[in-house]
């Protein structure tokens, strides 16, 4: 927790000029990433992925297969890193934990009545504790967007702080669901609330709402992280999630991290991609850069 003297008035969070932020975000996409910087970047991207399955129809079988994929992205290409984590519902944490044993890959669990977050606080706390007890290394919570829109910032803050406490040693990712907050001013304000309440990561989206992660929204959050770091000395991680399915887009995000936060965040300890289909596109690109030819999608497993 942050020293309470340091907690600011969140209504005074910095204002964002949307046009300016979008222009700046576009500028990152103009960087030309070629040759070895492309390969190195793509490997870094792979290593930052939270391979995710969050469906009503998830089963143990599905989760086990996903975990195998996490550890063996494409064995035809030697020397590839693994993904950073596998992200599942709390009921599948135990399965994933067992399947990933010894691999170094983290298990992340969504909690707090994901994705809507419309549940009483004690239910959310119980769910969080359940996930952690099952072995989750990381918890991805959702904020109460309704309360946030109603201006009940203290409620949102306290809830995040309570979930953080329930996490114990597990790292907490706080999902703002930026597609429901809409304005850049509100995204910045929610980022500040989450970080001061104890978030280890702030995350754009559940993946269930459109738009999910975008470059400008991620930029606003990275800048919030930078300001928070300078204020408190504490690093907070960033996880854009949803809608990032192409290598090229992922590299744009990496460029943005490099130029907004620098070396300290270019690691999966502080930056993640929440994605399910991104990995295969990255693998295809790496295969192309290595062999000089594009291979058909059928050469890459679909889990």
């Amino acid at each position: 927790m942050i020293n309470s003297n340091l907690i600011p008035d969140f209504t005074l969070s910095p204002r964002i000029d949307q046009t300016g932020a979008e222009e700046r975000a576009l500028r990152f996409t103009r960087r030309s990433i070629k040759k070895e910087s492309k390969i190195n970047g793509l490997k870094l991207v792979l290593n930052m992925i939270d391979l995710t399955t969050l469906e009503g129809k998830d089963t143990e079988g599905k989760v086990k297969q996903l975990c195998y994929k996490a550890m063996h992205l494409h064995d035809a290409l030697p020397g590839l890193p693994t993904v950073a984590a596998v992200c599942v519902y709390p009921l599948f944490v135990k399965t994933a934990k067992k399947a990933l044993e010894g691999s170094g890959i983290k298990v992340a669990s969504v909690a707090t009545a994901f994705p809507g977050g419309q549940a009483p606080r004690d239910v959310k706390i119980r769910e969080t504790k359940f996930a952690v007890n099952e072995g989750a290394d990381e918890v991805d919570m959702v904020i109460s967007r309704g309360r946030f829109h109603a201006g009940e910032y203290n409620y949102v803050f306290d809830e995040i702080a309570a979930v953080k406490e329930a996490c114990g040693p597990a790292r907490l990712k706080v999902i703002l669901e930026t597609g429901e907050l809409v304005s850049f001013d509100k995204i910045r304000r929610a980022s500040d609330i989450a970080m001061y309440a104890g978030a280890d990561f702030i995350k754009t989206s559940t993946g269930k709402i459109q738009p999910a992660a975008t470059l400008p929204v991620t930029l606003i959050m990275l800048e919030a992280i930078r300001d928070f770091y300078y204020k408190t000395g504490k690093k907070v991680g960033m996880k854009p999630a949803g809608g990032i399915s192409k290598s090229k887009t992922a590299l744009h995000y990496l460029v943005m991290v490099k130029e907004v936060l620098g070396e300290g965040w270019l690691t999966n300890e502080w930056f993640r991609f929440g994605a399910s289909s991104l990995a295969n596109d990255v693998l295809m690109q790496i295969a192309k850069e290595t062999t000089g030819i594009y291979q058909a999608a059928n050469y890459f497993s679909i889990d």
Binding site: R226, T232, G233, E259, G262, E263
Partner: peptide, 20 residues
Amino acid sequence: ILPRKSNTLKLSFDTSWTYA
């Protein structure tokens, strides 16, 4: 976390991942 003077903190943009 105690408040720190911001001038003691510095971000490093000399990154290991560079543009070719």
